[in-house]
Amino acid sequence: MGKANFSLIVEFTLLGFSDLPNLQGFLFGLFLIIYIGILMGNGLIIIITKVDSALQTPMYFFLRNFSFLEICYTSVILPRILANLWTQKRNVSFVACAVQFCAFFVMAIAENFLLTVMAYDRYVAICKPLNYPLIMNHKVCVRLVVGSWMGGIPIHILLTYLIFSLPFCGSKNIDHIFCDIRPLLKLACGDTSVNEFTFYAVVLILGMFPFMLIIWSYMKIITTILKVPGTKGRFKAFSTCSSHLMVVALYFGCGIITYLRPSSGHSAGLDKVLSIFYTTVTPMFNPIIYSLRNKDVVVAIRKLLFK
């Protein structure tokens, strides 16, 4: 009799911004502008780091891959939001929801790893400059990028299975802008504590461990910079990693607030706002940060525009 109460859910409904019917057109235009800005900004970074001979270094090789990852990362979320706002059809199949869920977290963990690799690159460049060409050779750089992309795939396929193997009953409405962990667990039947604990334990390890490595790298970097004689020399050394440090603070800060704040502080509206900032606004600002804070990138953009 208990099993008879469960209905097989073959699709969900992403409510998104359905509670703002008068703003659908405005929101579509806003998100379309943001998405185009992300594509153009990160695409420009990819182009200039590929074609400019002065930017053929490990630092810009990692930046190029980071920009490509940002495009993939937002493309998992924004096209679905735009389609929902344009058509007002918010249905998403069970399989499509699972694919979006898995792809989003695979990209997020890849970004964690890649930001860690970029911090390590700056650590070697500043703390071990004489050995930098030997340590960060092209083969090592390629392996680090591939490892960053592939590192989270097996685990998140398993975690996706763990979440989507749960029985879903009753409402099929996901009160969120994409298939995220908390809204999905609210729709699951029975005890989900083990699944939730396992998911957050893995995500915490894959998130906080890279973050701690980045903190360690910058502690070493700052210690080395303070030993550089003269204010000008210190400023030049710090300017090479200030852009990356700002991106790290923005990315991990948003991620920690979104996923690690207490359950009592969660509401559907606040979760949507934070998710928008985390998945769209941050990737939009990253090219701006690297452009404004990096003289080499500014020079390369000017050269490209003049051509």
Rank of each mutant, 00 (worst) to 15 (best):
I9P: 05
V10M: 05
E11I: 06
F17L: 07
N22S: 12
Q24S: 02
G25C: 03
L27Y: 02
L32E: 04
G41Y: 03
G43M: 04
K50E: 12
K50A: 08
V51G: 06
D52H: 01
L55P: 00
P58V: 09
Y60M: 06
R64L: 00
L78Q: 01
R80H: 08
A83D: 10
K89M: 09
C97E: 07
F104V: 05
M107N: 12
I109R: 13
I109Y: 04
L114C: 10
R122V: 02
Y123R: 07
I126F: 00
I135P: 00
H138R: 14
L144P: 01
V146N: 14
V146I: 14
G147V: 07
G151S: 11
G152Y: 05
L159E: 06
S165V: 03
C169V: 15
F178V: 08
T192N: 09
F197R: 03
I205S: 07
G207H: 08
S217V: 09
I221C: 02
T231D: 14
A237Q: 00
F238N: 03
S239K: 05
S243K: 06
Y251K: 12
L260P: 05
S263V: 14
S263F: 08
L274E: 01
F277S: 11
N286T: 15
Y290N: 08
V297D: 02
V298G: 13
V299F: 06
A300R: 01
I301C: 07
R302G: 05
R302E: 10
